[in-house]
Amino acid sequence: MVPLSHYLFLSAVLFMTGAVGVLTRRNAIIVFMSIELMLNSVNLTLVAFSSFLGNVTGQMLVFFVMTVAAAEAAVGLAIIIAIYRRKQTVNLDEINLLKW
């Protein structure tokens, strides 16, 4: 019997791993994958609550998160590819056109 808190701790640790990736890595694609990790950890929390409360509404929310994640993946990768075509790099430190 695995209690609910184990699932919550697991997704908290996964969220922290993704946050470290977003904050420390400078490759845009790695940052992108770290954001996917954070989204997945939230989905895991939602499904855990849904399963332990016996209520399917949490799983509905997972589908909306997945929809937004898919839209984000498509648009984000398109932007990354467009930037790469223009600047020949995906290093976030060199993409500073809007930086004052």
């Binding site: 996917e36 993946a73 990768l77 790469y84 790099t89 995906v90 290093n91």
Partner: peptide
């Protein structure tokens, strides 16, 4: 999609 992104942006330059 992510693998496509990796392959399209990960040349020797970067």
């Amino acid at each position: 999609l992510i693998l496509f992104g990796v392959m399209l942006t990960n040349r020797q330059i970067s």
